[in-house]
Simulated assay, not measured.
Amino acid sequence: MDESGFSGRLTSSKKVIVPKGTRHAYQTQVTMSGHVTVVQAISAGGESCPPMIIFSGCLPRGTYEAGVPDKFIFRSTDSGFINNALFLEWFEEAFIPSLGKERPVLLLLDNHVSHWNPQFIDKAKHHGVDLLYFPSHASHLLQPLDVVYFHILKQKFADLAIKIGYMGCKTLPRNLFPRLLHQAYNNITGSTIASSFSDPGIYPFNNKAVVALNSQKQSKPLSADKENPTIETCETCGHSKENYLVKLGLVSKELSEILVEPPPPPKKKGRKNTRSHEMAEAVYSKPVETEVPTEPEQDMEEAQPTAVLCEVCMTDYDIFWVGCDSCDRWYHHECLSPAARRAVDKSLSDKSVWLCHICSEE
């Protein structure tokens, strides 16, 4: 089981036929007002249980229940998202009545906060339902509804909504949502539902179905000489050129683009990168002339250099700096406007004077 949201613009990737020479093929834009959550459960045998449709704000006006089965459940929340109470209600009123008499039943679901309700776990034990939670951040690889079913359902729903858009309906009425969703359900076959379990390798079981989780080589244990490995970093941004988790043997190469290392902390100390200009060289290469005080504590305080902050972002991150030739203001090259950056590049090439916008106005 899983839940998925419907909101915003409905787009369809359906192929169309246009006259030869047409550069752009346009389609009618249909939007939805508010947010709608659909709670759905499917089985490896190609069956599905009645959904729970959760509207944002309140239930729609009009005959929204017409043309849909009586087992559809309609609820509403302020945000249109599911909560613990609605999830428990769906489990008792939609899921349990759809099961047969054979027990136990295995229910696969993700680690959403609404799925960890203690009352729900007690109800599952009472009805003979075993719970298996997917690992965190792996539902897009393992969960059948996310891998196959919801993509097909939303595509078929968008195709039906765009057909209504050609009749002059630019915004899909909320009371028509259940009927279109029911028609989209009818266009999905049992073999498609069953393929939602076979593609991630759940049933029939296939441990090589998900390529990202199938490592060709086993990760080697972390040895004593790899506790502090040498990581090659980029000279510009300071970020490692390769995923050091792979170098440690904690992550396979197939997951190197998914499980990445955290960004490096901003550098607060050290000499700043200045542009090749006479003023920049004078500021950082010329030693600071200070009088030797009588007290050693004052000597320590006066010897510390004053921090330089960017006039735009007011930070001292160690990136490419630009200094004005008339005043003591400093800027990050990335914080300047495009016109100012072009003027800086020109001054670097012809060794001319560059003034900030304050000195230019003066």
Rank of each mutant, 00 (worst) to 15 (best):
P178I: 04
L309A: 03
A158Q: 02
M32Q: 05
T230R: 15
V39R: 09
P262M: 06
L86P: 06
G34T: 07
D199N: 10
S79K: 15
V288S: 12
C356Y: 01
H277M: 04
K268G: 05
I54P: 01
L145Y: 04
H137N: 14
E281Y: 04
T28D: 02
A340L: 13
A212P: 00
L355F: 03
A25I: 01
I96F: 05
P178W: 01
S136K: 08
Y133I: 11
R179V: 03
P135Q: 14
C58R: 15
E89V: 00
V147F: 06
T11H: 12
L153W: 12
S56G: 15
H126M: 07
Q218S: 11
E281R: 08
W354L: 02
D70S: 14
Y331T: 04
L132M: 14
Y317V: 13
I188C: 08
A307H: 02
S219D: 08
C359L: 08
N207L: 06
N83I: 02
G46N: 06
T236H: 10
E289S: 12
K163R: 11
T306R: 14
W330Y: 10
G128N: 10
H24L: 06
Y331I: 05
S256T: 13
A158M: 02
K125D: 14
P293I: 03
S13Q: 14
R275H: 09
K14I: 09
D350S: 11
V18R: 09
S240H: 12
D146S: 12
I319T: 15
E295C: 13
A158W: 01
K101H: 13
S195Q: 10
T28P: 00
F157W: 07
N206R: 11
W116P: 00
Y284W: 08
K253V: 12
L176A: 00
S76K: 08
V105Y: 01
K15D: 04
R9I: 03
I162K: 08
A85V: 10
E65Y: 02
P104H: 09
V105H: 02
F91L: 15
P144D: 09
